[in-house]
Design a protein around this nucleic acid. Structure first.
Length: 315
DNA sequence: TAGATTTGACCAGT
DNA sequence: ACTGGTCAAATCTA
């Protein structure tokens, strides 16, 4: 029997899940077509679909599929770490070990500690001198004194963890008086990703400078050879805004990524270990250019056209 | 009063 | 055994 699809699941659920995946594949194909077109413009000169829209659609497809699978999963009385969307609350824990026999639980209905620690998900670390507003809604769920650390570490999860099954988390560690290290784990699959996009799109006004970091460094272990020639493969990593363009070098935030950023239209196949250089920004046309200095040269430009990010790269 | 934060306990990984 | 990640009751706040 298929362990992922027990006998008592409704066939309609299976069909819904399949349909969601088929739809997601279709969106992914459209995205691939766009990525194969360096300018994101079709032959007739018209702009293709918004990449961000497609990414959102694909993520929604996954979220919906997970929800369906979760429903099916809970109805089967099993729990799965693969499908943690909305019922990630102790359902499958071996409660008999604790609830019935353990005397550790003070109330007898204490459910704390009911969790499965996630294996190392995609994560990336960002350091900055201030706490960063990244546009996502975070809920603090823990604070921990870390050995040899001067300050406690704060743990945040996405506010939409339970209503949308978003598994994104972040840890904020104050390293020094004015230095914070934020580690993001997992990607947002919630609607707030739109909010984040709007956040930086809206703020791309003429008075601000947009800093973009690119890297052409290959990942360690999960590069697919087929993608190496894709000009979007080493997609841009981060966006930082500063009001004073004179401070480009001093204000650059250094990022270390092991997967792509939330804003990216990226096949999520590369890893990054170096954020490189911003060359210049033309704020009047909201076009930015950037290049990586070491490991293979990459020059690219990014512009906002009708709220759609347009990428252009040249080797 | 609902949602967010605090905080001690629990548990997984090493 | 120890450390760090997560849970959930208690508490806070808008």
């Amino acid at each position: 029997m298929d362990p992922f699809w027990p006998e008592n699941n409704l066939p309609s659920d299976r069909m819904k899940a399949v349909n969601e995946l088929v739809q997601g594949r279709e969106f992914a194909n459209q995205l691939k077509a766009i990525l194969n077109n360096p300018k994101g413009i079709s032959d007739d000169g018209l702009a293709l679909f918004s990449r961000e829209d497609l990414v959102t659609k694909i993520l929604n497809s996954f979220t919906n599929t997970l929800s369906i699978l979760n429903r099916a999963d809970s109805s089967s009385g099993e729990v799965s770490d693969q499908f943690p969307a909305t019922s990630h609350r102790c359902g499958g824990r071996k409660l008999s070990e604790d609830s019935g026999e353990s005397s550790k639980s003070s109330t007898g209905k204490d459910r704390r500690g009911c969790y499965k620690r996630r294996k190392t998900a995609h994560s990336w670390t960002k350091e900055s001198s201030t706490l960063i507003e990244d546009g996502f809604a975070w809920r603090k769920y823990g604070q921990k004194k870390i050995l040899d650390a001067k300050y406690p570490r704060n743990y945040y999860r996405c506010t939409h963890k339970f209503d949308q099954g978003c598994q994104a988390t972040k840890q904020v560690q104050q390293v020094e008086e004015e230095l914070y290290s934020t580690t993001y784990c997992g990607h947002h699959t919630c609607k707030s990703i739109v909010k984040a996009s709007e956040l930086f799109l809206d703020s791309a006004d003429a008075d601000s400078t947009i800093f973009l970091s690119f890297s052409t460094t290959k990942g360690e272990d999960n590069i697919s050879g087929d993608n190496l020639d894709n000009p979007f493969f080493p997609s841009f990593q981060s966006i930082k805004q500063e009001n004073n363009q004179d401070n480009i070098s001093s204000n650059l935030t250094h990022h270390q990524y092991s997967s792509s950023s939330e804003y990216l239209v990226s096949p999520d196949l590369s890893t990054f270990d170096h954020a490189d250089v911003i060359s210049g920004v033309n704020s009047s046309s909201t076009t930015a250019s950037a290049h990586g200095l070491d490991m293979g040269m990459m020059v690219g430009s990014v512009s906002f056209i009708d709220d759609v990010l347009q990428f252009e790269f040249a080797e």
